[in-house]
Design a protein around this nucleic acid. Structure first.
Lengths: 243, 243
DNA sequence: GATAATCGGACTGTCCGACAATTCTGCCAC
DNA sequence: GTGGCAGAATTGTCGGACAGTCCGATTATC
């Protein structure tokens, strides 16, 4: 049943080196904050050319495992910033032409849960963040882009307040996809803005009072609202952008 | 209030080039399957050295935007494979020392939704995939690793059957985190295996009969079971691995 | 003595040139 | 058309080089 032979693969040196260094980081032999040896030194240690080392560390840098403080020259071990990885997920989803319904269903799964946990765990600072995002939406002028950004920021703030980094990281890629989709419809649906405003207000109230179930319920309503205008056709996010 | 000056940032050439090429890909000027010009040619076009080009395309290759068929030399534009991006997310979460409870809550949000949509949309082939994974679990010998892998595969199969790529991609990183966690507990909790077996069976039945609500409910029960043993302490996934 | 200016060394980003191994391509024979 | 082949093209890797910038230590200044 299973193949007798596996395809012959021979990773280039820069890949092997990247993997070796990555293992050290994941195993915490190299710990967050540690400075990496210089490229020249690494080249010596691995017995390869500096160009090869550079290609290897490029990979780790992109993964967010290595980075430098602003204006610093030496690389150090860092933790991958959530934003960096989620932007990669967003791009992947966009390139796969996911439909708005797919996005919507995922939001429907994730956001209410985030709201629920936010209600029981939010800190005072996080609550302020929520209020700020909501205010920015309701006080915004007609500017569509700004309104959409405020809606997205509200979701981000809820996810952060959930105190759950897995949920937050699952939620984050949705934002970048929601933005173009929402821009296309927020001005098409009458009352969209007033409904968003009302829902956000209800959600914040529930989170403020630690009412988990109410927070979840209102978030569900909030997201259901987004589905309007999509009932009939199932455009890809890309098409919404006008391509 | 706001700074008068922003910090001076000057991306290195290889980053700028990577961004330029990425834009072409995202905008579909370069379309999936298209072959990229040779490194030498790109170097000429951008007016930089080949080494610089190599570092730039390394970035895109890592993102999964460029790749080559097995045994092919030229790079072509590819769609990021979900598996590639989700492994990055997993690694990020692991390095942030997320707790099992965070993982569990995320599963609780995503898996039941996936099961629900799977029940209404699964193809016959996907149903077979589900059954296969489930059989592999129930017929497995005592081997812990194999049992855990089968459980994970079952989740993957459900996510795939959901027909929702956003949900599937949100779910996928959870698998790599679940594996070590589940390995540590599956043999600690008596009846764990029989309960998993029963739940999988119920879920498959519901999906087979297109009973969305039942599928969701049984998936919820299935996942709730995983929480046993974690009620008191909140270990990070990493600690479960024995580090 | 503490702080500020100075200087040399170290390091990164980029370039140039080179070569072996492998893949691609056009051409030829069948 | 198929198969085979020589030559061209391409990638992975190497060595060396240099300008600009950062870092650390030393020296000068208050």
């Amino acid at each position: 049943m299973t193949d007798l032979f596996a395809p012959l693969v021979d990773d280039p040196a820069y890949r092997k080196i990247a993997i070796l260094i990555e293992q050290r980081i994941v195993a915490r032999t190299l710990r967050t904050g540690d400075a990496l040896p210089s490229e020249t030194d690494l080249a010596r240690q691995f017995g390869v050319n500096r160009s090869t080392i550079r290609e290897a560390i490029r990979e780790l840098e992109i993964h967010g495992l290595l980075g430098r403080e602003r204006g610093e020259k030496r690389l150090r071990v860092t933790r991958p910033e959530p934003q960096r990885v989620s932007s990669g997920v967003s791009r992947a989803l966009a390139l796969h032409d996911v439909t708005f319904m797919e996005l919507w269903e995922a939001m429907m799964a994730i956001e209410p849960a985030a709201a629920q946990y936010a209600a029981s765990r939010r800190t005072a600072a996080q609550l302020r963040g929520l209020t700020r995002a909501s205010t920015r939406f309701s006080e915004g002028t007609g500017d569509t882009a700004a309104a959409v950004a405020a809606v997205v920021d509200f979701f981000t703030a809820v996810a952060e307040a959930s105190g759950n980094r897995v949920l937050a990281l699952a939620q984050s890629p949705l934002n970048l996809l929601l933005e173009p989709a929402l821009s296309a419809i927020i001005d098409r649906v009458p009352q969209a803005r007033s409904r968003i405003e009302a829902a956000q207000s209800k959600i914040i109230d529930a989170i403020k009072l630690n009412k988990s179930e109410q927070a979840r319920t209102w978030m569900e309503k909030h997201i259901r609202d987004f589905k309007r205008g999509y009932e009939l056709d199932l455009p890809t996010i890309r098409e919404l952008e006008g391509h």
